[in-house]
């Protein structure tokens, strides 16, 4: 990587627990703008916890360490402020909100973030045009946009909807939590293409996944292995193939 590229996400010695049970135990991670980092690891290694802690889910307590986004202290901000600051989490299980049309939700979210950043709200015609453009590429129909947010959506539709939100909100850092779970290969390709289209030199990605197959489509710059709440190994994209072949057993023992 070029040395003058700025640090986007910087996590130092992060410890976090849920109901007094430690999950993250001294995690360090640096992501520069323009990079795609994959985090792989066995079930229970704390991958999803990392995404929730970064986004600010209240069930988790940060007991030690720090995380900054573009130099700003993430832990000093409410979840919505973190979103406005440019952090986007693509949920493993996107929530359903009955009665709230997807379009309404997108507009409310976009305008809330614009307001928080001191930008003017987007006029409705422009907004609709923008959504249609982005939605077309992801194969999201107008009908889906009118339906209640994620209500009655298939697994693939929910994930595409997450990518649509990512495209629309244009975050600085995207955290994808097991985005491949529950997707067949065609859906996976659509989602991956959507993500790839968003790769840019001023944007970073943290792709959390259990399996290597997603990384065939979203090719990472760096691959980390996580076990027992820490990054235990870091390498290039070939590391993912190695893991696919050998499994996580070594790392589970190593960290124990």
């Amino acid at each position: 990587m070029e040395p003058d590229v700025k640090m986007l996400l910087s996590i130092k010695n992060l410890h976090a627990s849920i109901e007094d049970k430690p999950i993250l135990r001294g995690l360090d991670l640096d992501v520069k703008a323009g990079e795609v980092h994959a985090i792989m690891g066995p079930n229970g290694s704390g991958k999803s916890t990392l995404s929730y802690v970064l986004a600010g889910k209240s069930d988790y307590d940060v007991t030690e360490g720090s995380a900054t986004l573009d130099g700003a202290d993430l832990f000093a901000m409410e979840p919505d402020a973190r979103a406005a600051a440019g952090l986007f989490l693509a949920f493993q299980y996107p929530l359903e909100i009955p009665g709230v049309a997807t379009m309404t939700f997108l507009k409310t979210a976009l305008n809330a973030q614009r307001r928080a950043r001191g930008e003017a709200e987007l006029p409705t015609p422009q907004f609709i045009k923008l959504v249609r453009e982005k939605a077309d590429g992801l194969g999201i129909s107008t009908d889906m946009l009118k339906r209640g947010l994620n209500v009655g959506f298939s697994g693939g539709e929910k994930k595409r909807n997450e990518v649509l939100q990512m495209a629309l909100l244009e975050p600085k850092l995207c955290v994808l939590d097991e985005t491949d779970s529950g997707l067949d290969i065609d859906a996976l390709k659509i989602v991956a293409e959507g993500v790839n289209a968003l790769r840019a030199k001023d944007r970073g990605f943290v792709v959390i996944t259990h399996y290597q197959r997603l990384l065939d489509h979203i090719v990472p710059d760096v691959v980390h292995v996580m076990a027992k709440g820490r990054i235990v190994r870091t390498g290039g994209k070939e590391l993912a193939h190695e893991l696919e072949a050998r499994g996580y057993a070594d790392y589970v023992e190593e960290a124990a």
Binding site: A55, E78, D80, R82, A84, F91, T108, A109, Q113
Partner: peptide, 17 residues
Amino acid sequence: FYCQQRGLSSEEAVALI
């Protein structure tokens, strides 16, 4: 949390839901 992660304040999230 989902709404807040997308940038809505807690009051906006309640009103929306």
